[in-house]
Design a protein around this nucleic acid. Structure first.
Length: 214
DNA sequence: GGCCAGGACACCA
DNA sequence: TGGTGTCATGGC
C-alpha cells in the first residue's frame, strides 16, 4: 500500500486519463440543466433531456421559463423524475433570473452563505448545490457524488456512507485551483464509469494499491 | 424482466 | 438527525 495525498490522487488521475473538460456544456445555463437532469439517472438519459431543452430554447433562461409546465415536462421526460426535475429547473432559473443571471454578483451578494441559499431552491440538494458552486460560481469545492464515495472508500477512507458524513470527512485541499477542482470531479466520475460501476473492478485499475493519507 | 444509473424530498419517530 | 418510501426513464 502506498499513501498519497488528495492532490497526488488528482495528478495521478490527470496523468493517466488526460483532461476531461468538465463540465461538458457550452453555457452556464446548460450546466444548470445538466446538473439537474443527471440526478439519479444515467448520462444517456440525462443528455436526451438536455438536448431536448436546447433544441427548443437554445438554453436561454427566459425561453425556458416561458415554457408551460406541460411543455417543460415533456422535454425533461427522458431523464426520468420529470415532474420533480421540471420543478427544479424552474426554481433555479427563476432565482437566477431574479438576480439578472449575474453569477459574479450573486456570489458576491451571498458570499459564504451561497451554498445555504442554493439548498433553499426546490430540487437542489447537497450534491447539486456543490456542482453549481463548482461549475457555475467557479468555487473550488469537492463534489462527493456516488463515484467519489465509492472511490474514496476503495482508497481506505471510512465513513463515506452519506453526503453529510462525507462532507465532514473530505474537504478539498486548499492548493486546488478552481480549474483543478473542476477537473478533479470530472476525472473521478470518468474513472468511476470505467472502474466503479456495478460490482466494480477497482483492483484492475491504475489506482489499485494506493490509499489516501488521513 | 429485474437491476441500475453522477439525488432530492416528504414524512416519520 | 437519521431511516424509509417515492419519484421515472431507458439500456443491458
Amino acid at each position: 500500500m502506498q499513501d498519497i495525498t488528495q492532490y497526488e490522487l488528482f495528478t495521478l488521475l490527470l496523468d493517466e486519463m488526460g483532461e476531461t473538460g468538465w463540465w461538458p456544456a457550452d453555457s452556464k445555463i446548460e450546466i444548470v440543466i445538466g446538473a439537474i437532469m443527471i440526478q439519479n439517472t444515467n448520462a444517456a438519459n440525462a443528455k436526451r433531456a438536455v438536448i431536448n431543452i436546447g433544441e427548443v430554447t437554445q438554453f436561454d433562461a427566459q425561453a425556458i421559463l416561458n415554457l408551460s409546465l406541460e411543455e417543460l415536462e415533456d422535454l425533461v421526460r427522458p431523464a426520468g423524475f420529470f415532474k420533480n426535475k421540471s420543478k427544479a429547473v424552474h426554481s433555479v432559473l427563476s432565482w437566477l433570473t431574479e438576480h439578472g443571471n449575474d453569477f459574479e454578483m450573486i456570489a458576491d451578494k451571498y458570499d459564504v452563505n451561497l451554498r445555504r441559499e442554493l439548498l433553499k431552491l426546490h430540487g437542489v440538494g447537497d450534491e447539486t448545490a456543490d456542482v453549481l458552486l463548482l461549475y457555475i460560481f467557479d468555487q473550488p469545492v469537492f463534489v462527493s457524488d456516488k463515484y467519489a464515495q465509492k472511490l474514496y472508500t476503495e482508497l481506505g477512507v471510512t465513513g463515506m456512507d452519506n453526503y453529510k458524513a462525507m462532507r465532514k470527512r473530505v474537504a478539498l485541499d486548499t492548493q486546488f485551483t478552481t480549474w483543478e477542482a473542476q477537473e478533479f470531479h470530472g476525472l473521478i466520475d470518468e474513472f468511476g464509469k470505467l472502474y466503479l460501476r456495478g460490482k466494480g473492478n477497482f483492483e484492475s485499475s491504475f489506482l489499485a494499491g494506493y490509499q489516501l493519507k488521513e
